[in-house]
Nucleic acid binder design. Structure first.
Length: 504
RNA sequence: GCGGGCGUAGUAUAGAGGUAAUACGUGAGCUUCCCAAGCUUGAAUCGAGGGUUCGAUUCCCUCCGCCCGCACCA
């Protein structure tokens, strides 16, 4: 039996462990589950909470320049018009019913073929450098096939979003070359809709937020007016967001309800945004390493300039090597002043910052690091999962960072049929419980109890044995990763746990 | 949304048109002076609905969910 490194863990192994130990359950499972939603169990909710708290402490509490907010999930519908989510959250798609191919409507081009003033049919091509030539060849071939005489008029390509409803059936599918199989362009709007108030008419439509970021923008003035922040400064938020994904995949990696941790860092319009952007990429990477992700599994991906949204100056994703591939974990975007300007335009309110030094008003630019709690949760589990061998027996162990571990310490009496041992251990348990989430266990042999703690990532176990009650009151502290033990007095134990769990 | 595969205790798996099983885990008890030991004993399973049949967990259909590929992922 060879040890299994975390880099070889499979999703099946993780999903099974999550279910078996109460980290993650399929949502509303007794009704068959619901695609794209998950419920976090007792251990999973502790782990998520610890991730959120670690981020909040490091991002907000331990910095002077960042403040936190907590916005409602549903906001005024105009927010999503200003942000562009209502209009262009997703591109319209076209399906070919015959070939089962799907195209983005703005990448599928068509043109009528007109010969001597008579429309004889249509041609279609996919967006391409040579598409004009291809379309002309198709038109000529159509003209020959139908044996039409006369001058072929110039082929004017337009994209499929401009097609009129009566043209859908006439435009040939690029896959089959035959008309009649293309659907109308269909919107895939990824926002969940709901209605505010009891009347379910159009005027009551509202949306569950697809990102938390807009809250920082439309509360910009409130924060500036109430907190005495000075540029550069940031506003941070943790909260649920919702996207009606076409295909949720890969466990909690892409789900329809997820939790974001976003921060908008406002900088002076003339500041060196590239330097700030780089600094935030480094901050995020360092933070991930600090909570236990191996640097070797992290990488950076710069979005190519040509693919950037028009308002974005540059976006870099911190990627993580998941079992299903290298995927986006944390996106750090330089967004200029686009978002504030949009809200200025749509709300008619001034969202600016008065600069004392120059006695002038400026609209700041922004750097946005945005990460999903659930993606970190998954990356943490992927990195922590190991199988090794202890005294000839296979052991499953989660090497979670003590800061993230759901349970910090197990507390055991060595045996359960000696009342003095039990009483002493229980008193210690109650003492530790005031400070940390600790776990009491008397059932089974001591080795079994250690293994149970290993599997859920508990970094420490304390055992009260006969030396404790017969000699000096010292207890043993066992380390999860090495399985080594040291004897400590209770005060030494508390100091050691504080040092290793809280870093103080 | 399309195509393929799959769905049996908490987990991993076996099984057959005639009342469902193994291992681990788990509850209770005994034992035990430090790494899943042993013994006793208990709980727990055929994803949902419909059809065929004397009888369906098994065959058929629909739905739901999971996995893989395609497409998609502002």
């Amino acid at each position: 039996m060879s040890p299994l490194a975390s880099s070889n863990v499979t999703m099946d192994m993780l999903v099974s462990l999550c279910k078996r130990r109460g980290f993650v359950f399929p949502s509303s499972e007794i009704y068959g589950g619901l695609n794209g939603f998950f419920d976090y169990g007792p251990l999973g909710s502790e782990l998520r909470r610890n991730i959120r708290n670690a981020w909040w402490e490091d991002m907000v509490h331990r910095r002077d320049d960042i403040v936190g907010i907590d916005c409602s999930i549903i906001s005024h519908p105009k927010v999503w018009e200003a942000s562009g989510h209502v209009g262009g959250f997703s591109d319209p798609m076209v399906d070919c019913k015959e070939s089962k191919q799907r195209y983005r409507a703005d990448q599928l081009f068509f043109a009528p073929v007109v010969v001597a003033g008579e429309k004889i049919g249509y041609v279609s091509v996919l967006e391409d450098a040579k598409m004009q030539t291809e379309a002309e060849e198709q038109a000529n071939s159509l003209k020959r096939k139908l044996a039409k005489q006369g001058a072929l008029e110039p082929i004017v390509l337009q994209d499929y979003t401009n097609a009129k409803p009566d043209e859908y059936a006439l435009i040939p599918s690029p896959a089959t070359g035959k008309p009649g199989s293309l659907t109308a362009p269909r919107d895939f709007n990824l926002m969940f809709e709901t209605h505010v108030g009891a009347m379910r008419d159009e005027s009551a439509v509202a949306y569950l937020r697809p990102e938390t970021a807009q809250g920082m923008f439309f509360n910009f003035k409130n924060v500036v007016d109430t907190t005495r922040v000075k540029l550069p400064f940031g506003i941070a938020q943790i909260g649920r967001s919702f996207r009606n994904e076409i295909t949720p995949r890969n466990f909690v990696f892409r789900s329809r309800e997820f939790e974001q941790m976003e921060m908008e860092y406002f900088i002076h319009p003339t500041a060196d945004w590239q330097k700030e952007h780089r600094a935030w990429i480094d901050w995020c990477k360092n933070w991930l390493v600090s909570i236990g992700l191996p640097a070797a599994r992290l990488s950076e991906y710069d979005h190519p300039k040509a693919k950037l949204a028009f308002y974005s100056r540059g976006t870099t994703d911190i990627m993580f090597e998941y079992p299903f591939g290298v995927q986006e974990l944390w996106g750090i975007a330089a967004r200029g002043d686009y978002d504030l300007q949009q809200h200025i335009k749509f709300s008619g309110k001034a969202l600016d910052y008065f600069e004392e030094a120059t006695k002038s008003k400026v609209v700041p630019h922004v750097i946005e690091p945005a990460v999903g709690v659930d993606r970190i949760f998954l990356a943490v589990l992927c990195s922590a999962y190991y199988e090794d061998v202890v005294e000839g027996e296979k052991r499953t162990v989660l090497r979670l960072h003590p800061r993230l571990a759901p349970v910090k310490c197990g507390v055991f009496p060595l045996v359960k049929n000696k009342p003095e041992l039990l009483a002493h251990a229980e008193a210690l348990y109650k003492r530790l419980r005031r400070k940390w989430n600790v776990f009491w266990d008397v059932s089974g042999a001591i080795g079994r109890r250690y293994r149970r703690m290993d599997e859920i990532g508990t970094p420490f176990c304390v055992t009260v044995d006969f030396d404790t009650i017969e000699k000096d009151g010292s207890v043993t502290l066992r380390d999860r990763d090495t399985t080594q033990q040291v004897r400590l007095s209770e005060d030494e134990l508390v100091a050691e746990l504080s040092r290793r769990i809280d870093g103080v």
